[in-house]
Design a protein around this nucleic acid. Structure first.
Lengths: 210, 210
DNA sequence: CGGCATCCGTGACGATACTG
DNA sequence: CAGTATCGTCACGGATGCCG
């Protein structure tokens, strides 16, 4: 466990950094925004993190009220980690960081890891303009779903949406990366025919009209 | 200098953390949002940072395009550090962190350092609702000014506003801390008579009416 | 005196190995 | 599968010294 290294400043930003300023913590939050994940899956989607640091961060997050550890009911009785409501409230922080970081993204470097759901946050921003609902996204790297405007529960998740989707988006890697870099808005990409939008929910309609 | 420890992930949030995720970096940005500062002043307002880490971070920030180093014209020819436009664009990140961290602020701990201008960001959020302009704030700990809605240049600074102010706010420590904790909105504090608002600018009028 | 560079002790981090 | 144990390395914090 950590000896609680604090900045000791009466400033809310410094207090926030006391809790989420350690290396890897905010990236673990990004992963857990996708819903409950097992330790091994977290470790696989955070290349470079060592096992002890990951375990330590997860304990810190539990102690600080950002996450919980829960045992799945058998069969497949494994531990899963998930965010608390307080942890999910970090979404705006990750959105702000992600928006600022778009300008730094540039072309994909040979050393860069990629996961399909890392495109969830950028796409979520674009979809937030179009309304609320559940969207399924299919990329070449994989498929995930977005719960646009979700007030409780995970904001996105791997695979198709459990309860069906209001809209379904198909786009290629180049388009996806351009949106993630902020070079292209989602609306522009739809207009240019680089995103195929299907479905008859309000979300799908608004997106096609925009 | 730093060996550029990167997460190596094709994700804009991870890229942002590559640049501003190191310890102290975002707090240095918070300080520099107040405008040009000398090394010694930075060191004084960031208790706990060691001299070499501060110097190293400032170099990193210059290399990464977040800040610049400039020599003041004589007399008093000293170096000052200031943010670039790119660095100032980190304001939303600090706002998001600060907003989330309000809930963690609680009562002031004996070990906590305080500076008057650390209340600038919370007050800036409240004033942003009221409009745009320049506000002077007088606290017991000191005085500073806020450039609400500023598109270029520092968003706040120590001391009175150089070019005069549209509004002038006087409030006590308890009120100020309650606003910083998010327990009390600035509008509520004004309504409760806990903030004295003077001045005849639009900002002052809107604030008194709210 | 302001602005660092250097040295040093401690702790955080990253990689690998190992265990219930 | 889900971590714990071990270890080398590096980053951090504190103190001191140098140099304009």
């Amino acid at each position: 466990m950590s000896p609680r290294r604090s900045y000791d400043q009466y400033c809310s930003a410094a207090r926030a950094l006391d809790l989420v300023g350690d290396r890897w913590t905010l990236l673990i939050v990004r992963e857990l925004l996708a819903g409950p994940r097992r330790y091994t899956d977290l470790h696989a989607d955070l290349p470079g993190v060592s096992t002890d640091v990951l375990a330590s961060r997860l304990k810190d997050m539990e102690r600080d009220g950002l996450g919980t550890r829960r045992r799945l009911p058998p069969p497949g009785a494994a531990y899963v980690y998930e965010l608390t409501e307080r942890g999910r409230e970090l979404l705006p922080v990750l959105q702000a960081l992600g928006t600022w970081g778009e300008a730094e993204l540039g072309q994909r470097r040979p050393t860069d890891a990629v996961r399909a759901h890392w495109f969830a946050l950028p796409l979520l921003r674009g979809l937030g303009q179009a309304g609320e609902g559940v969207a399924e996204v299919r990329l070449e790297e994989g498929e995930f779903h977005l719960r646009v405007g979700a007030v409780d529960g995970p904001v996105y998740g791997d695979g198709p949406a459990p309860g069906g989707a209001d809209a379904r988006l198909v786009l290629d890697a180049a388009t996806c990366e351009a949106v993630a870099r902020g070079e292209l808005s989602l609306a522009e990409a739809v207009r240019a025919g680089r995103v195929t939008v299907t479905g008859d929910g309000t979300l799908a309609k608004t997106l096609r009209e925009a």
